[in-house]
Amino acid sequence: MVSWLRANGKILFRGAALLLAGAAAGFGLGLFFAVPAGPGCQESDLTPVPDTGFASPAPEAAPASSLPQEEPVPEKWVCLTFDDGPSKTTPAVLDVLNAAGVKATFFVVATGYNEKYLPLIADAAAAGHQIALHSASHEYSDIYQSADAYWQDIELLKERISPYVNTASLHYLRFPGGSTNTVSRRYGGRGVMAELKQQCAEKGYAYVDWNVCAEDAVGGKPSAGTIYRNVVRETGKQTQCIVLMHDSATTRTTAEALPDIIQWYRDQGFTFCRVEQVLPAP
């Protein structure tokens, strides 16, 4: 499991596999620095004041000699992640990714409103993209009433998408609002997120936040050019990036921005990875 620790204004991500033998040049597979998402992400993702509580600590790492050998992770990597799909915009996103030979990670929902698009999950998986869990309802007032309510939502999500993907193989999730959201306190109290983060490890999940936000789900329907500039700005000098984007029904311009985003990362020497390739499994 992973732990997120706030340090010097950033969140230090440490994986249980920090000592993997394949890591080189000072880069540990489980080491990941993530900064809180910028103001543009607050409307749809983070609440204004991030939670400063710690997640559960990572389990004691096994000796390096006993860990399985894996290919080293590139020094510069980026994970393109998409929330809130599949939807009518997902085919356009998949077309761009597949044409560019880029593999991404999709944190899917199954709200009932997107039922006819759920078969696209099978298409994404068949193309080599990673499928991960987001929410069945995405209704904060429902899923954050209690820890039990959240896990019931996850089980419902798995049930709804089970015809299209092997749900037993899904071990990564993203909390609606991220692990630092505070809106959950309105419904489940101040401790509900800390409880959920601790239970992730117990239930065999790793939760995933982000350190680059495309701000594509904010009000006003940003243009493709604005989304591209947001990604470039928030990436800055970071060399290990998890980018938050959306393939929901209202984020049509994300697919339009995607070719330029992919080309920019390539020009900067980044390698595209799925989340499961760079963050240790639970």
Rank of each mutant, 00 (worst) to 15 (best):
A62Y: 02
G53A: 15
L173Y: 02
A147L: 06
Q69C: 00
V218S: 07
E215P: 00
G22V: 05
L94V: 10
R252I: 12
A17V: 00
P63R: 05
T180N: 09
P176K: 05
R233T: 15
I131K: 02
V232D: 06
P163M: 07
E70H: 11
F272H: 02
S87T: 10
G178E: 01
Y113N: 14
V102Y: 03
E202D: 14
L97A: 10
L20I: 03
A224I: 10
K10G: 00
F270N: 01
A122M: 07
V243R: 03
W264V: 04
V278Y: 02
A194T: 13
K76H: 07
A34H: 10
K221V: 11
I121R: 02
H134L: 09
A62K: 13
G26W: 12
K116Y: 00
V49E: 15
R252K: 14
A25K: 14
G30E: 08
F13G: 15
W264L: 04
T81E: 06
G128N: 09
R174L: 06
E215A: 10
T235I: 08
S146G: 02
H134Y: 10
G269W: 12
V232G: 07
I131D: 02
G219D: 12
N230D: 07
A64F: 03
T239I: 12
G40K: 09
Y205W: 10
P39M: 05
A23N: 14
T239M: 09
G112S: 07
V93F: 02
V108Q: 02
